Each structure stands twice: as structure tokens, then as C-alpha cells.
Simulated scan of single mutants.
Amino acid sequence: MRPSDLADEHGISTQAVRNYEQSGFIPPAARTPSGYRVYTEVHAAALRAFVALVPAFGHARAGQIMNAIHASDPDEMLLIIDRGHEQLLRDRETLGSVSRAVQDLTDFEPVLEPRTIGELAHRLGVTPATLRAWEEAGILTPAREPTGYRVFRAEDVRDAELAHLLRRGGYPLARIALVVQQIRTAGGTETLGAALADWRRRLTARGLAMLTASARLNDYLSARAPAP
């Protein structure tokens, strides 16, 4: 097989095939006396596996998996795959927690009057020091009166309610800050629903890609196995 035969199957350039070979993502090709590369069905199976691994695990991890195979290190290969599945599970759990938290927030009565730090702490059943820690982490961004006192408006109370829910679920402040930032960017919990649905679709697509990648990887491992 020529480099173009492998490239055409995946809609990539022949230079990309050579780059993948150089990076160890596919095994080295044999050379003709004149120096031309000669690929086989084993190389084609390797490229199919790598291409399938990218949407499942990302380009870096896909390369690491192929490198581990070619280094005859199956334990490292499986460890990288396991970490990818573990990350997907964590992402699913985070999505579930955020979805439940957003749903719970819709059941709260809107707070229209500004709240002081003491009033908000009492509402949540936490200490003012906790709210100050959330502010330091970027979760809360209250306004300040000329006297320097914090003023928590409706959107601040919403963010505090969400943070409180996620903290009870065991999430660290840094991750909660990212979620709250998503809500601010989206314009509220209603708009965030569309973003969460898109997030769910992307996680589903990644999970299905992992199934495809497993099949292609198994095909490659079978193709490169020595004949009995």
C-alpha cells in the first residue's frame, strides 16, 4: 500500500501519514530499494485505530495509547484507556450534579431585595466566613456600598444557592467557580439548560466514540499479533 492509499481512506494528507509514522502512532514502514515507503494492512489497521481514538480520548492520549502498544507495554496502554473512561465518568457525574442543582434552583423563590452577608449566610445556613471564602474563589461577586459593606443581589443569591448545593455534593471551590461562571455567561439558569443539553450530547458522543475506538484497537492488536 502507498501512503496515498492510507491517506485517502481518512481524508488526510500523505504528509500526515508520514508524521504519524514519525511520531510512532503507526509502525515504521518498509522501504523499497529506491526509498519509497511501503505500507501493509497492519499499517492501515493502526491508522484506523489512531483516527478512532482521537475523538474518544483526545489527540494526546490517542498518541500515548499507540506509543504504548508499539513499546510493547499493554499495561500502560490499558492505564491510559482506564483514565479516559474515569474522566468521562467524572464528567457525567458533574453534569448530573449541575443539572440537579439548576433544577433545584428553579424551585427557589427569587430574591429581589439586596441581602447583606449576614442575611445571605442565615438563608443558606453557613457562616459569613464561608461566603467570604466563596468570594475569594471567584464564586460570588457582590457589589460594595460606599461604606465597603457587601451587597448581594438576586443573581448573587442564585450563585450562592448553586455553590451551596454543589458543596454539599463534595465539589471543590475551583470547579464550582467554573460552573457559576458558565451560568453568568449563559445569562441565567434558563439559558444554561441549552448548554447542559449540548454538554450531555458531547459526553454521549465521546462514550460512543470510545466503543468504536475499542473495536478498531482490537482489530489492530489482532492484525499485528504473530500468526500461531
Rank of each mutant, 00 (worst) to 15 (best):
T127A: 09
T127D: 11
T127Q: 14
T127R: 12
P128R: 02
P128Y: 06
P128I: 02
A129N: 10
A129R: 14
A129L: 13
A129G: 13
T130C: 08
L131P: 02
L131Q: 00
R132E: 01
R132P: 00
R132V: 00
A133N: 10
A133Y: 10
A133V: 12
W134V: 01
W134T: 03
W134K: 09
E135G: 07
E135T: 04
E135A: 08
E135D: 07
E136F: 09
E136P: 08
E136W: 12
A137M: 04
A137H: 08
A137R: 06
A137Y: 08
G138P: 02
G138F: 05
G138D: 05
I139R: 06
I139Y: 04
L140N: 01
L140G: 02
T141W: 09
T141L: 09
P142G: 07
P142M: 09
P142Q: 01
A143Q: 13
A143Y: 07
A143P: 06
A143K: 10
R144M: 02
R144K: 13
R144P: 00
E145V: 05
E145D: 13
P146I: 09
P146W: 10
P146F: 03
P146E: 13
T147M: 04
T147Y: 08
T147R: 11
G148S: 02
R150S: 04
R150W: 03
V151T: 08
V151A: 15
F152E: 00
F152T: 05
R153K: 10
A154M: 13
A154V: 03
E155A: 11
E155Y: 09
E155P: 03
D156Q: 02
D156T: 00
V157P: 07
V157E: 10
V157F: 02
D159A: 15
D159M: 05
D159Q: 08
A160Q: 01
A160K: 02
A160F: 03
E161I: 05
E161W: 11
L162K: 04
L162R: 06
L162Q: 04
A163S: 12
H164N: 09
H164Q: 07
L165R: 14
L165A: 13
L165Q: 10
L166S: 06
L166I: 03
L166D: 00
R167A: 13
R168S: 13
R168Y: 06
R168H: 12
R168G: 15
G169V: 03
G169I: 00
G169W: 07
G169D: 15
G170D: 12
G170P: 13
G170M: 15
Y171V: 05
Y171K: 04
Y171E: 07
P172C: 07
P172Y: 10
L173Q: 12
L173E: 14
L173F: 09
A174L: 15
A174K: 15
A174E: 15
R175L: 12
R175P: 00
R175N: 11
I176Q: 00
A177M: 07
A177D: 07
A177R: 11
A177I: 07
A177L: 09
L178C: 06
L178W: 06
V179S: 12
V179K: 05
V179A: 13
V179P: 00
V180L: 05
Q181R: 14
Q181D: 15
Q182W: 14
Q182F: 11
Q182G: 13
I183T: 06
I183V: 15
R184P: 02
T185F: 09
T185M: 08
T185K: 09
A186G: 09
G187D: 08
G188N: 07
G188A: 07
G188S: 09
G188D: 10
G188V: 02
